[in-house]
Amino acid sequence: MTFRAKHLLGIEPLHPTEITTLLDLADSYADHNRRGVAHRDVLAGLTQINMFFENSTRTQASFELAGKRLGADVMNMGMQASSIKKGETLIDTALTLNAMRPDLLVVRHPHSGAVDLLAQKVNCAVLNAGDGKHEHPTQALLDALTIRRAKGRLHRLSIAICGDIAHSRVARSNIMLLGKMENRIRLIAPPTLMPSGMAEFGVEVFESMEEGLKDVDVVMMLRLQKERMDGGFIPSEREYYHRYGLDAAKLAHAKPDAIIMHPGPMNRGVEIDGTLADDINRSVIQEQVEMGVAVRMAAMDLLAQNLRGDRKAVMV
């Protein structure tokens, strides 16, 4: 047993062997999913609650499906419509929910650190489905699994992460994960969308796509997060596409077998050319979605094992 974490709050606290354990399990779940092998006993009798304080379609659906495939009782709570509107604090919401004795709590929240705060107050396993601009660990794990399956390894690869890094929790989690697995990371963004101090993370920072994409194995595009911008980060979408949108000409600087990734949802014609995104020879975007379910199954499986172990220890 090499996965000891009680919660999955971020990539930062994970050890590389824990990441590998999780990816190995997810890999087998991915194969089983393709073959239609059911595992309804894994989370049987456990309750999974999805608490999304911020809009989500794909992540929430992916967690729901993952829980159901493993036999959990899944409940979705749209938190935007509920008690916070009535003035309840996050901690009170957490305590209320905790009293209902869930086993797995999947949380997305618009503020960085909010999921950590919530995890301190509950007795179940908490999975971070994205907190503010901090982390989105399952996204990084599914990206890692996708890369590993496409490239045959997850180390000593040159990986470019491009676009709106400033507003992206996906970028932060990916920098952590890919760094821990000893890859070469290149960040490409206009300086207004590059957080300060990034060079200190052991990554290379570029302002030009042409330079940054040179000879990379993986091109990871990020969504331009228009909803998080309070104005004035870039002059216009068309200038952004011109300078930072991924098209065939820019992609030509990468290795000929470089894969294209995007966490979705895509802004076609803003950060990525539509035909490239659909190119089955280069784009692994659909595979990322598929791996998402497998990774979330693996994460919940491992956390549930630890949870059951802890509870047994308490009873003895």
């Binding site: 930062e12 601009k133 982390e135």
Partner: peptide, 9 residues
């Protein structure tokens, strides 16, 4: 700085 970027604050 680095800490703010790390914590996403």
């Amino acid at each position: 700085g680095k800490f703010a970027s790390l914590r996403g604050l």
